[in-house]
Simulated scan of single mutants.
Amino acid sequence: MPTLDVDSVSAFVLVADLGSFTKAAHALGTSQAVISVKVKRLEDRLGYRLLERTPRKVNLSQRGKTFLRPARNFIAAHQLAIAGLTSTPKRLVIGISDQVAGPGLPALLAQLSAYDPSLVMEVHIDASHTLMDAFDKSAIDAAIVRREDDRRDGELLVRERFGWFASSRWENGEGQALRLASLASSCAVRALATQALDAAGIPWTEVFIGGGMAAVGAAVSAGLAVAPLAYSVAPVGTIDVGARYGLPRLSESDVVLHAAVTDPLSQGAIRRLAASFRSGETGAAIALEPASSAMVA
């Protein structure tokens, strides 16, 4: 029976999750070469190839697919054994902007929990400015937010595109003001969107105001209105109708990480979370609609 080491198995699981040696290296704070050596060492010990490498993507081999679940169980057992050496579980409090937390977030949190069950995670979903206030007051350990105002600190995770999303069956009647769904008036994305509409001379009326992205997403999916959303958080099944109605192009937005953790366990979890945002794991597949000549009157 081959003897497995935790570092090699952890490297394999991370590459499998992120689909990239480079992203896995960033998540672990090391180099791509080190990750490659660890995975190769694991493959040599098992006696078969776990990953199929292509220029653009890393895929699991058939053996790799079979080994992935036992590999997760192996890591979880190791972490639980380590956690048993201390009487106080480590708690990590993370704030994630409601304009950032995409449909894939639950699956990602489940992966983090399975990867390190000894870590107690407390996640707050709120507006970016609210989370930054909490981070500055040391009320939370880390914040993943949209960059707002003139603040330029934080680690850039991804630059996201925005669009005007609506249900595939949604229509805005000719001569009618654009029916808009948005978050509260303090939302920076709402402000940018309405300013762009005003600058383009497109009349709009706010027909739905949601207390969170779940409410706005429900209104959009129900066909009540169109909403300015990042591609990563747009509800599954909605489409960008900006081209169809001649709506102004929305500027991109930076998603940044602010973190103030020093212990290796929390740092590892934060790196894993950041790598997932970089790879787009938290987003959803969005069906794009072809451009049309229809305009908002």
Rank of each mutant, 00 (worst) to 15 (best):
R272H: 11
E252L: 03
A275G: 15
A294Q: 12
S221A: 14
E289N: 07
E43L: 06
G29L: 07
A134G: 03
A225N: 10
I202G: 03
W204V: 02
S118D: 00
M295C: 04
L157G: 06
V123Y: 03
V236T: 10
K23L: 15
S20K: 01
T3F: 15
A142D: 06
E174W: 03
S253H: 14
G173H: 09
G175H: 08
H258E: 01
S10V: 03
V39A: 05
L183N: 05
D5H: 12
R271P: 14
I82D: 01
I35S: 07
D7L: 10
L273I: 03
A234P: 05
S167L: 05
V255W: 00
G64W: 09
A200L: 11
S253I: 13
L273W: 01
A16I: 02
S168W: 03
D263S: 04
Q267K: 14
L109R: 04
A200V: 13
T205I: 06
R151N: 06
T130H: 05
R151K: 07
G84S: 12
V58T: 14
V158E: 03
G210I: 01
V6C: 05
V6N: 04
M132C: 01
D240A: 12
F162K: 04
G201P: 15
L192C: 04
A222R: 11
A83H: 01
E155N: 02
Y115T: 11
S167A: 14
L60S: 12
